[in-house]
Design a protein around this nucleic acid. Structure first.
Lengths: 240, 240
DNA sequence: GTAATAGTGTCTGTGAGACAATATAAG
DNA sequence: CTTATATTGTCTCACAGACACTATTAC
């Protein structure tokens, strides 16, 4: 029996299968705080609760492609840093049926965040409060624009907490911070992003030194316009 | 319509579903090198190639439970550090059908590694060579006990590379190194594990200082026996 | 000039690498 | 005593935090 014959006889319906979905944590920085875009559930279960945008994975669609499709369809966006986060597979995480969810983290610039809100008015921008520090992680709080604490559907609070832990962990050794900033930015803006993600103030001279020493920043020679006082130089992210 | 009625009417067969499997990277340190336990495929596709032990996820089984079951059934083991690694979901990663694989990293002490080999003689202990350094990652090489380079089945080489990257990344801020060591160990053994994982020599006094300053080590007052020369003190892993 | 922020210089403390010195056990 | 490794001490260097100083722009 060669491989072609084998494949013909293989029975792909031999056992019951779970459904597989992707859920997206659409993350940006708004008003100095991390924020996430949520959709209101209009169906049971958890009807009326806020949830992460998601969708089922097509049978001929890779996980990354499914995440990119949900990003387009549910968030009206083409461009964003997208990375796989973790796969949530508790048996009872969805009461309808067995659904395994592969969570993705999408990082949005402030412009992309606002553009998504414009394209999809049903999206809610919710502020994220992270009460813990360090590598352990823990629960996070989600606040509506009216400062009401929201209870997320399913295990989406745990997914969001995982996203914040990942983002904090990668912040200073990877380039994720630049995914939250526009093409051109000042060092102050870069520091603001770091401080918002970490939830802590940073020392300015030390921050500048460390960022410049990394060699990931290219000075443009251009300066911000419209600043009330001395305008800062604009930098661009550029490896090495 | 309340939630119970809704669930009754929900059609769980509405669309085609992928299969979901778990694959385990059973990792230990042997002769100062990282090593992985492999199984030989006796079926098409990729018959005769070496693969990571794996199994399908049951419809009433969480991902973690499936990984623990595979650990028991395919590796004859009950105890090991087990953590989810990454989910591999390319459409064509398995020619039989669409299979999404949730990879797990299992860390074995040298005793557990040998016990698994004893319990499951079909397992092959293969040495892992990691040619890269730093956070980027890249391909790894797998060598049989006869020093022959092995080609792994499916995308298992990529899974193994992901495992090595994760292990290196977590080595000095987490407790993974202790999962590779017995209950009682010397500082030299701890350093050997770090050096094997990192593939680099470390400075002894600096290593000792850093480990002791972390506060994760409890001196036992006992010393190793049978050492050819001065015996080292035995330590135990203990948080804070 | 004043206000407010951008950007730089310098001191200090912490921690890692390098290297040497001391301690200890087997034979 | 010799050998080989465990364990400790010390020097130096790199780097981050703290803090003050200079630079620049709007008004």
């Amino acid at each position: 029996m060669n491989e072609t014959e084998f494949l013909k006889e293989y029975d792909p319906t031999a056992f019951q299968r779970p459904s597989v979905a992707v859920d997206l944590v659409l993350l940006g920085i708004r008003d100095g705080w991390p924020a996430v875009l949520l959709v209101k559930r209009d169906q049971l279960p958890h009807v009326g609760r806020w949830a992460l945008p998601g969708g089922f994975v097509g049978i001929d669609e890779s996980l990354d492609a499914a995440a990119a499709r949900v990003l387009r369809e549910k968030a009206g966006m083409g461009e964003a840093h997208l990375e796989q986060l973790y796969t949530f597979g508790a048996v009872d995480r969805d009461p309808r049926m067995r659904i395994i969810s592969v969570a993705y983290l999408a990082l949005l610039t402030e412009q992309a965040f606002d553009a998504a809100l414009g394209a999809m008015p049903a999206l809610l921008p919710a502020a994220i409060q992270v009460p813990w520090a360090g590598e352990t992680g823990g629960p996070v709080t989600v606040l509506s624009p009216e400062k009401q604490e929201l209870t997320l559907a399913f295990d989406h609070a745990a997914i969001l907490a995982t996203a914040m832990l990942r983002l904090r962990g990668k912040l200073d050794y990877s380039d994720v911070a630049f995914a939250l900033l526009p093409e051109l930015f000042t060092l102050r803006q870069l520091q603001d992003v770091h401080e918002a993600v970490l939830g802590a103030a940073l020392n300015k001279p030390a921050f500048r030194r460390r960022q410049l020493d990394k060699g990931w920043l290219a000075a443009t020679g251009a300066y911000e316009v419209g600043a009330a006082f001395r305008p800062a130089e604009l930098y661009r992210f550029q490896r090495h």
